[in-house]
Computed example of a mutant assay.
Amino acid sequence: MENEPEYGASLVPNLSHISFLAKNHTGIDIDDVTHLVGNQYQLTYRYQWSIYNGCADMDLDGEESTTVSFTMDDLGSIKFNIHDNEARDTLDEF
């Protein structure tokens, strides 16, 4: 998918459930695109996150994988079906 730089950052979710310091600087890595039916597809991708806090001597890295469905029109325009979920916090993880 040649336009990944245009939409990749928009597919990385809010990382506050990991830490308010968690950041993604690399966009996404596409693993697979699957045709579902008609003009509907599913994208499987990974994104990396990092946390750096020099004051706490913390330098962590991680990676998560997820999927999103999308449609593509006849002109090749892509519309992702992203649910606008509320931000999660660490209490949601328990």
Results as ranks from 00 to 15, higher is better:
1 M>E: 08
2 E>C: 07
2 E>M: 09
2 E>F: 04
3 N>A: 07
5 P>M: 05
5 P>N: 09
6 E>M: 08
6 E>A: 12
6 E>F: 03
7 Y>G: 00
8 G>L: 04
9 A>H: 03
9 A>W: 01
9 A>N: 12
10 S>I: 11
10 S>E: 12
11 L>N: 06
11 L>T: 06
12 V>G: 00
12 V>L: 02
15 L>H: 01
17 H>I: 14
17 H>V: 15
19 S>L: 14
19 S>D: 02
19 S>R: 03
21 L>W: 04
21 L>C: 04
22 A>Q: 03
22 A>R: 01
22 A>F: 11
22 A>K: 02
22 A>N: 00
23 K>C: 07
24 N>L: 02
25 H>C: 02
25 H>P: 06
26 T>H: 11
26 T>F: 00
27 G>V: 01
29 D>F: 03
29 D>P: 04
30 I>E: 03
31 D>R: 10
31 D>N: 15
32 D>K: 15
32 D>E: 15
34 T>L: 14
35 H>I: 11
36 L>G: 04
37 V>M: 09
38 G>D: 10
39 N>I: 08
40 Q>K: 15
41 Y>D: 02
42 Q>Y: 00
43 L>D: 01
44 T>K: 10
47 Y>F: 12
48 Q>S: 13
50 S>L: 13
51 I>Q: 02
51 I>N: 01
53 N>E: 13
53 N>I: 06
53 N>M: 12
55 C>R: 14
55 C>L: 15
56 A>E: 12
56 A>Y: 07
56 A>H: 09
60 L>T: 07
61 D>A: 10
61 D>I: 12
62 G>R: 14
65 S>F: 04
65 S>A: 13
66 T>R: 10
67 T>A: 06
67 T>L: 05
69 S>F: 00
69 S>D: 10
69 S>I: 06
70 F>H: 05
70 F>L: 06
72 M>T: 08
72 M>F: 00
73 D>Y: 03
74 D>G: 08
79 K>A: 09
81 N>C: 05
82 I>S: 05
82 I>K: 05
83 H>A: 09
84 D>P: 01
85 N>K: 13
85 N>S: 09
86 E>H: 11
86 E>L: 12
88 R>A: 11
88 R>C: 07
92 D>E: 05
92 D>V: 00
93 E>F: 05
94 F>K: 05
